[in-house]
C-alpha cells in the first residue's frame, strides 16, 4: 500500500484565473481578486476585507456629490518654478510630465456641489501628483476653496492625501502651512464648518496644518496619519514600530480624530456633521 494516498482526484491547485488586462483588481492586503466593476461599485474597497484602496479627487467627487454632479473651479492653476530647482530631474519637467501623465494640474482639486442636497465646497488631494505634495498651488487652491465657501455661505471639506510639503519649492512650500491655516481662521470667523477627511497617507506639512485643524477630523480606516513618516520615526528611535502605529485607529485612540469612517458611510457622515453644525441651505 502506498504511504500516501491521493484523496482528491486532482491536485488542488487554485484554478488559474486568466486576468484580462485592466479588468481585474487584486487586494494588496488579502489577495482577493475582484472584477474592476465590482470594485468600483464597492467604493473602491476590497469586497472581502474592506481594504481602502487609494483613490483620487475624481473618485471622491463622484462618490460624495449627489448624482456624481459637481462643478470644478480654478482647475488650471499650475505651479511655477521660482527656485529653478533641479534634483535628479528639473522641477519644471517634473511638473509638465506629471500633468501629461495624470491629466491633473497639481495635487489638489476644488469642486462645489451637493451632498444629500446640502451645498458644500470640497478640496480633494491627489497622491499621484508628486506624492500629493503641497506647494504654492495647494496653498492657493485651499485659499480659493475657502473663499468660495465663504461666498456661498456653505461648509468646507478637505480630503487630505499628502506626503507633506513639496521640497522643490523649499521654504515657499513651508509658508503654505500658514496660508492655508490663516484662511481656515477666516472661515471660522464666518462660523462656517470645516471638516477634514484624512485618507491614506496624511503626513508632514499637510498633517501639521489644515488636515489636523478640522472642526471635525474624520479618517478612513487604516490610513497612515502622522507628522514624521514611519521611516523617519524608525530611524530616530532605532526601534521597530508597534503594529498599527500612526494608523487611523491609533490616532483616534490618542485623541486626534473624532471618528474613523468606512468609505461607504463617508457621504452620510459628512452630511450629518454638516447639518449638526450649519443651518442654512
Amino acid at each position: 500500500m502506498a504511504w500516501f494516498k491521493r484523496t482528491k482526484q486532482n491536485i488542488a491547485t487554485q484554478e488559474k484565473k486568466e486576468l484580462g488586462e485592466g479588468h481585474w483588481i487584486k487586494c494588496p492586503k488579502c489577495d482577493e481578486i475582484m472584477h474592476k466593476k465590482q470594485w468600483e461599485n464597492n467604493y473602491y474597497l476590497c469586497t472581502k476585507c474592506d481594504y481602502h484602496f487609494r483613490i483620487g479627487s475624481e473618485e471622491y467627487f463622484k462618490l460624495l456629490f449627489d448624482n456624481s454632479e459637481f462643478k470644478e473651479f480654478d482647475r488650471k492653476v499650475t505651479s511655477k518654478d521660482p527656485l529653478d530647482f533641479v534634483d535628479t530631474k528639473k522641477y519644471k519637467d517634473r511638473i509638465n510630465d506629471t500633468i501629461k501623465k495624470t491629466g491633473l494640474y497639481d495635487a489638489i482639486r476644488n469642486a462645489i456641489g451637493e451632498i444629500n442636497g446640502k451645498e458644500c465646497v470640497i478640496s480633494a488631494m491627489d497622491f499621484n501628483f508628486i506624492g500629493g505634495s503641497m506647494g504654492s498651488v495647494v496653498g492657493e487652491k485651499i485659499a480659493r476653496g475657502i473663499q468660495r465657501a465663504i461666498k456661498e455661505k456653505c461648509p468646507y471639506i478637505i480630503i487630505s492625501k499628502s506626503g507633506g510639503a513639496r521640497m522643490m519649492e523649499a521654504a515657499i512650500s513651508l509658508m503654505q502651512l500658514a496660508k492655508s491655516s490663516a484662511w481656515l481662521a477666516k472661515l471660522a470667523e464666518h462660523k462656517l464648518p470645516y471638516i477634514s477627511v484624512l485618507t491614506d497617507p496624511t503626513t508632514g506639512g499637510a498633517s501639521a496644518s489644515f488636515s489636523m485643524l478640522g472642526d471635525v477630523n474624520i479618517a478612513e480606516p487604516d490610513a497612515l496619519i502622522g507628522f514624521a513618516g514611519p521611516r523617519v520615526v524608525r530611524q530616530a528611535t532605532g526601534k521597530d514600530l508597534p503594529k498599527g502605529f500612526q494608523h487611523a485607529e491609533f490616532v483616534q485612540e490618542h485623541g486626534f480624530l473624532d471618528c474613523v469612517v468606512n468609505r461607504k458611510d463617508l457621504k452620510d457622515k459628512l452630511y450629518q456633521f454638516m447639518v449638526y453644525m450649519h443651518d442654512k441651505k
Partner: peptide, 15 residues
C-alpha cells in the same frame, strides 16, 4: 520625530 511625540500629536500641536 520620536514615537512619543507622534502619540501626543506632534502634527496637531504644530498645526
Amino acid at each position: 520625530p520620536g514615537m512619543d511625540a507622534e502619540e501626543r500629536g506632534q502634527a496637531e500641536a504644530i498645526a
